[in-house]
Computed example of a mutant assay.
Amino acid sequence: MAPPPVVLVSAGVGCAPMTGVPAHLASIGSPRPLLFPHAGRSPVDHALRTETGALVKGLPGARSAFRYEHAGPEEPDARSGLMDLSEIELPDEGTVFLCDPLPFIPDVRGQLPAAGVSPRRIRYEVFGPGLWLPGTAA
């Protein structure tokens, strides 16, 4: 039986904690399929872009899907605009992990059922300022 895939959806600095997952999979020689969609302002602003790219390229069955508000030549395969999961082929099983500051989480989580992802397969972590706390809204 093949191991279930892992999908790591992040934006902005949310990629920082996510990058540990492909690093771990590489360190143990895991055959587990991995999909790493990430959205950001631009390739230049994408924290850990080089490291993430190298990890994904080094894992069998791993792929990334980068989107940027302002795409650039540093990532020629990246798409422009906000994260749109309808443009990414998501696996039929496995777990989807979301990580980023608000409001990315509710927007992307709302896209997952239309992509065929059951709510019980979704995990998320807010990573960033506590915008839900009184007096912290921008």
Rank of each mutant, 00 (worst) to 15 (best):
M1W: 14
A2P: 15
A2H: 05
P4I: 03
P5L: 04
P5M: 06
V6D: 00
V6Q: 00
V7P: 05
V7M: 02
L8E: 14
V9Q: 06
S10Q: 12
A11F: 00
A11S: 11
V13R: 05
V13M: 04
G14V: 10
G14D: 07
G14T: 08
G14F: 03
G14L: 04
C15M: 10
A16V: 15
A16L: 13
P17W: 01
M18H: 07
T19Q: 08
G20F: 11
G20S: 08
G20C: 03
V21C: 05
A23F: 05
A23M: 12
L25R: 06
A26I: 15
A26Y: 13
S27N: 02
S27A: 07
S27Q: 03
I28R: 10
S30Q: 03
S30T: 06
P31D: 13
P33Q: 12
L35G: 06
P37I: 11
P37D: 12
A39T: 07
A39Q: 13
G40I: 10
S42M: 03
V44G: 01
H46S: 07
A47Q: 06
A47W: 01
A47N: 02
E51P: 03
E51Y: 10
T52Y: 08
A54P: 00
L55E: 02
V56T: 09
K57N: 15
L59F: 06
L59A: 01
P60E: 14
R67D: 04
R67A: 05
Y68G: 07
P73F: 14
E74D: 15
E75S: 14
P76N: 09
P76F: 00
D77K: 11
A78T: 12
R79S: 05
R79A: 09
L82M: 10
M83V: 12
S86R: 14
E87N: 05
E87Q: 15
E87Y: 13
E87V: 11
I88A: 09
E89L: 12
E89R: 13
L90M: 09
E93V: 03
G94N: 13
G94E: 06
V96L: 02
F97V: 15
F97G: 01
L98R: 07
D100Y: 11
P101A: 11
I105Y: 00
I105T: 04
P106Y: 04
D107R: 02
R109M: 00
R109C: 02
R109Q: 02
Q111A: 02
L112D: 06
P113F: 09
P113W: 13
A114W: 01
A114Q: 12
G116H: 08
V117D: 10
V117Y: 00
V117F: 06
V117C: 11
P119L: 00
R120A: 13
R121V: 01
R121Y: 02
I122W: 00
I122V: 10
E125P: 00
V126G: 02
P134E: 07
P134C: 09
P134K: 07
T136Q: 02
T136N: 03
T136Y: 01
A137I: 10
A138D: 13
